[in-house]
C-alpha cells in the first residue's frame, strides 16, 4: 500500500477507553498520499475525530502504528541514524502537522499577529521580522490583514477560524488536519472558512478533514472515507461514495444527511 509518495500510513489503529470497554477506534488502516484531500465523514461517535486526533498524537493510540514521513510516531523511542535508541521527539513531528480545531483555540491573551508568530519564533524556525512578514502575507491571503492587532474576542467565529488556519500554516506544515472546523460556526460564516480551505486544497496542501459539510466533501475531497463504529466502512472518490454507496450503513447515513 505504501508508495514513495505516502505521507501518513496507519496500520491497525485502535483507541480504547476504560480498559477496552469503549472502543473509539477498532482497527483503522489507511495510507494518505501527498497532495490528497481526505474527507472523513460519519455519524457522531463513529471515531472520526479520535482518528484525526491520533494522527498527531493528541490522543495516544492503544494499539497500532502511525508512520509519518517514514517514522513510527507511536513509538516512545526510535533508532537514530547511528542505530542508537533515542527518545522520539513528538514536538518535531507536530511542527510538520498543522491542526485546526472545532473551537478555534486561539490564545485569548495575544493579538492575532502574536498568535501566529509565537510558535515559529519560539521554535527558532524564523526570526521575529520574518515571522511578522509571513504572518501579514497570510493574513492578506485570508482577507484579515487589518485585524492583525486585534484580540481574538474582538473577532467573529468565522474570522477566528480563518486565523486559526493561517496560524497553523505559519509552521509550513506538510499536512493539515481539520477537526470539524465549521461545526461551531453560525451558518452564515461557514462559507468564508470553507473558501479558505478550498483555496488551500487547490494550492496542493495535503489535508485530512473531519466534517459534516457534504458539499465540501463532494466538491473538494479527492477521497471520502466513511467511518462507523470505530472502523472505516467504505471509502472512495466523492462520486463513488455519494453516487454509488454500497454498504447499508453508508446508504442510511447519506439518506439522513443529504
Amino acid at each position: 500500500m505504501a508508495t514513495a509518495d505516502t505521507m501518513i500510513e496507519v496500520n491497525g489503529l485502535k483507541k480504547h477507553y476504560n480498559r477496552g470497554a469503549i472502543k473509539a477506534l477498532d482497527g483503522v488502516d489507511i495510507a494518505i498520499t501527498k497532495g490528497e484531500v481526505v474527507v472523513v465523514i460519519g455519524p457522531s461517535g463513529s471515531g472520526k475525530s479520535t482518528f484525526l486526533r491520533c494522527l498527531n498524537l493528541m490522543e495516544e493510540p492503544t494499539e497500532g502504528d502511525i508512520n509519518f514521513d517514514g517514522v513510527d510516531i507511536t513509538k516512545k523511542k526510535i533508532k537514530n541514524a547511528e542505530g542508537k535508541m533515542v527518545k522520539l521527539d513528538i514536538d518535531k513531528h507536530r511542527q510538520k502537522m498543522g491542526m485546526v480545531f472545532q473551537h478555534f483555540n486561539l490564545f485569548p491573551h495575544m493579538t492575532v499577529l502574536k498568535n501566529m508568530t509565537l510558535a515559529p519564533v519560539e521554535l527558532k524556525k524564523m526570526t521575529e521580522a520574518e515571522a511578522n512578514e509571513k504572518a501579514l502575507k497570510l493574513l492578506d491571503r485570508v482577507g484579515l490583514r487589518d485585524r492583525a492587532e486585534a484580540y481574538p474576542n474582538q473577532l467573529s467565529g468565522g474570522q477566528k477560524q480563518r486565523i486559526a488556519i493561517v496560524r497553523a500554516l505559519m509552521m509550513e506544515p506538510e499536512v493539515m488536519l481539520f477537526d470539524e472546523p465549521t461545526s461551531a460556526l453560525d451558518p452564515e460564516m461557514v462559507g468564508e472558512v470553507l473558501d479558505v480551505m478550498k483555496e488551500l486544497a487547490h494550492s496542493g496542501m495535503t489535508m485530512v478533514v473531519v466534517t459534516h459539510e457534504m458539499g465540501f466533501a463532494r466538491e473538494v475531497g479527492t477521497r471520502v472515507v466513511f467511518m462507523d463504529g470505530g472502523r472505516i466502512v467504505e471509502q472512495g472518490t466523492p462520486e463513488e461514495i455519494f453516487g454509488y454507496p454500497s454498504s447499508e450503513r453508508l446508504k442510511s447515513f447519506l439518506l439522513k444527511v443529504l
Binding site: 493528541m58 507536530r94 510558535a119
Partner: peptide
C-alpha cells in the same frame, strides 16, 4: 492542544 499541535513543548 493548540499550542502542542504547533510543536511547542
Amino acid at each position: 492542544e493548540a499550542a502542542r499541535s504547533l510543536g511547542l513543548s
